[in-house]
Amino acid sequence: METKTITKFSAELLGTLVLVLMGCGSAVIAGANGTSGVGLLGISFAFGLSVVAMAYAIGHISGCHINPAISIGMVVAGRMKAGEAIIYIIAQVLGALAGAAILLVIASGKAGYSVATHGLGQNGFEAASPQGYSMMAGFVAETIFTFIFLLVIFGSTSTKNIHGGFAGLSIGLSLVLIHIVGIPVTGVSVNPARSIGPALLVGGTAVSQLWLFIVAPVLGSILSAVVWRFVLERE
């Protein structure tokens, strides 16, 4: 029985909401320095575990893309129709906005919190980079990290993979790895929706730099899909 479009839309919206709320929330609420903070590793695992959890929660419904770069990559790889991808992307962006909004409500409950000062886990480069990395460094990192992330997704979900039942785990752990390396550079996006949600609520520099976190992940996903389809898994 084919899953209805509205069901897939709802799954992608809720899945992206959870990713942004838990992933960005780990940075905003639990990522403080000192003994009370989870640090870089904790934030990395929060993003990865969010994907693992959602993969097993909604993977059988929508495939658990929860990322426009993945949906676009699936179209290029011939695994998804463009019309369905557009519906997925709309759901993902709305879910990211909802997740960021919930995070803002929770974070605002602490005295002294300011969205302008503390943010919502938004991405950035140069002065907005966690460790001051340049725009070029950020663009290259986001492109290559997304390229790698999509390769893991294509391989893990391939019909030729006899270990397909562990796809959610391998995809989530690959995202952990990417965050461990990439958080100091841009805070890590590899997901335009994850960047759009927090940026639109924070405003300012986060919005002016948003283009990079849309263009680079999409470019990385397209390159990965082409390599996978025509080099690695061609018939």
Results as ranks from 00 to 15, higher is better:
Thr146Asn: 05
Leu14His: 00
Val227Trp: 03
Arg194Glu: 02
Ile222Val: 15
Gly220Ile: 09
Ser170Cys: 02
Tyr133Phe: 15
Val181Leu: 14
Met54Asn: 14
Ile61Asn: 10
Gly182Cys: 10
Asn123Ser: 12
Val185Lys: 12
Leu19Arg: 07
Thr117Ala: 14
Val207Glu: 14
Pro184Asn: 13
His179Gly: 09
Gly39Gln: 01
Arg229Ala: 11
Asn161Thr: 09
Gly83Glu: 02
Val38Thr: 08
Ala216Gln: 05
Ser10Gln: 07
Thr7His: 10
Gly155Val: 06
Gly37Ile: 01
Ile43Val: 15
Leu13Tyr: 12
Val215His: 04
Gly155Tyr: 05
Ala57Asp: 00
Gly165Met: 02
Lys160Ser: 04
Ala53Phe: 10
Gly95His: 10
Gly121Ile: 05
Phe125Val: 14
Gly155Phe: 02
Val226Thr: 15
Ile66His: 04
Glu2Gly: 03
Leu177Ser: 14
Glu2Trp: 01
Ala141Arg: 00
Leu49Val: 10
Ile171His: 10
Cys64Leu: 03
Ala46Lys: 01
Ser108His: 05
Arg194Gly: 00
Ala137Val: 12
Glu233His: 13
Ile66Asn: 04
Ala128Met: 13
Ile72Trp: 01
Phe9Leu: 06
His179Ala: 09
Ala128Thr: 10
Ile148Thr: 05
Val52Cys: 07
Ala96Val: 06
Leu103Thr: 05
Val176Asn: 00
Gly172Ser: 05
Ser50Pro: 06
Gly39Phe: 00
Ala96Ile: 06
Arg79Leu: 04
Ala111Lys: 09
Ile29Tyr: 05
Ser10Pro: 00
His65Thr: 14
Ser224Ala: 15
Thr146Arg: 08
Tyr56Trp: 02
Met1Ser: 04
Leu17Met: 14
Phe154His: 02
Leu19Lys: 07
